[in-house]
Amino acid sequence: MSLLPRFRTFLRAGVLSALVLAPLAGCRKESGGGGAAGGDKAAGEEKWTVGFSQMGHDNPWRMAQTASLKDEAAKRGYELVVTDAQDQTAKQVADVEDLIARRVNVILLAPREFEGLAPALQAARDANIPVILVDREAEGTPGEDFVTFLGSNFVEQGRRAAEWLVKETGGTAGIVELTGTPGSSVAADRARGFRDVIAQHPGMKILASQTGEFSRANGQRVMQNIAQSLGPQITAVYAHNDEMALGAIQALRASGRTPGTDVKIVSIDGQRAALEAIQRGELGATVESNPRFGPIAFETIEQVRKGETVPVKKLITDRFFDRTNAAQFVAEAY
Rank of each mutant, 00 (worst) to 15 (best):
K205F: 08
L207K: 10
A208S: 14
S209T: 09
S209Y: 10
Q210M: 13
T211Y: 11
E213A: 14
E213H: 11
R216S: 13
N218Q: 15
N218H: 13
N218W: 00
G219S: 11
G219E: 03
Q220I: 07
R221F: 05
V222E: 02
M223A: 15
Q224R: 14
N225E: 15
A227C: 12
A227M: 13
G231F: 02
P232D: 14
Q233E: 15
Q233R: 14
Q233G: 07
I234W: 11
T235S: 13
A239C: 14
H240I: 13
H240W: 08
N241M: 04
D242E: 11
A245T: 06
L246P: 12
L246G: 07
L246F: 04
G247L: 04
G247K: 04
G247A: 05
I249G: 01
Q250H: 06
A251V: 08
A251T: 09
A251G: 11
A251H: 03
L252Y: 00
R253K: 15
G256Y: 00
R257P: 03
R257T: 10
R257S: 09
T258K: 13
T258R: 13
P259N: 08
V263T: 06
K264E: 14
I265M: 12
I265C: 07
V266L: 05
V266T: 14
S267R: 02
I268Y: 05
I268Q: 07
D269F: 02
D269R: 05
Q271R: 12
R272D: 06
L275Y: 05
A277M: 04
I278W: 02
I278T: 02
Q279R: 02
Q279H: 00
Q279A: 08
R280S: 10
R280K: 11
G281F: 05
G284Y: 01
G284H: 01
G284Q: 07
T286C: 02
T286A: 01
E288I: 01
S289T: 11
N290F: 01
N290V: 00
P291T: 14
R292C: 03
R292D: 14
